Deep mutational scan, measured.
Amino acid sequence: LQAFIKTLTGKTFTVEMEPSDTIENLKAKIQDKEGIPPDQQRLIFAGKQLEDGRTLSDYNIQKESTLHLVL
């Protein structure tokens, strides 16, 4: 599935991932794409901060969901 990552500066980019991917995997993909170390990334979806060990499906993240990236 493709999801949108929106930063506080208003920049939006897309990442490809599977519902079974962990938040940790997602942070690694963001690092590959944007060069931001995972330990500096905080991802917010539906008002909740996402925990590394959980999966996208745990948070009911669907295709074309928008996640907010806070540094």
Rank of each mutant, 00 (worst) to 15 (best):
I36N: 02
Q31W: 15
K6D: 04
T55V: 08
P38G: 07
K6M: 12
N25E: 11
I44E: 08
Q31K: 09
I61G: 04
A3D: 02
A3M: 15
K63W: 11
K27L: 02
L67C: 01
D39P: 06
Q62C: 06
E51S: 06
A28S: 10
T12I: 13
L1P: 03
P37Q: 05
E34Y: 14
A3V: 15
I30L: 04
N60W: 06
E34Q: 10
A28F: 12
K63N: 15
L50W: 03
T7H: 06
D52H: 05
N60M: 10
Y59F: 04
K48E: 12
E64Q: 10
T55S: 10
H68L: 15
R54G: 06
E24D: 07
E34W: 15
F13Q: 00
D21E: 09
V70C: 08
S65K: 08
P37S: 08
K63F: 11
V70T: 10
Q41V: 07
E18A: 12
K29E: 03
L1Q: 05
I44W: 15
Q40W: 10
P38T: 14
N25P: 01
I44Q: 06
I30Q: 00
L69W: 01
V70G: 05
H68D: 07
K48Q: 14
D58L: 02
S57C: 04
E34S: 15
K63Q: 13
I5Y: 02
L8T: 14
I36H: 10
K29Q: 07
I5Q: 02
T22C: 03
Q40S: 09
G53Q: 10
E51D: 08
T55C: 05
T66L: 11
E24V: 07
L1A: 05
V15K: 00
T9D: 13
I61E: 04
A3Q: 04
T7N: 05
E51A: 08
G47A: 03
M17F: 15
S20H: 13
R54N: 10
I61N: 04
K63T: 15
T14P: 05
Q31T: 09
Q40L: 11
Q31C: 09
K27G: 01
I30E: 00
I61A: 04
V15C: 03
F13P: 00
R42Y: 11
D52K: 04
K27A: 01
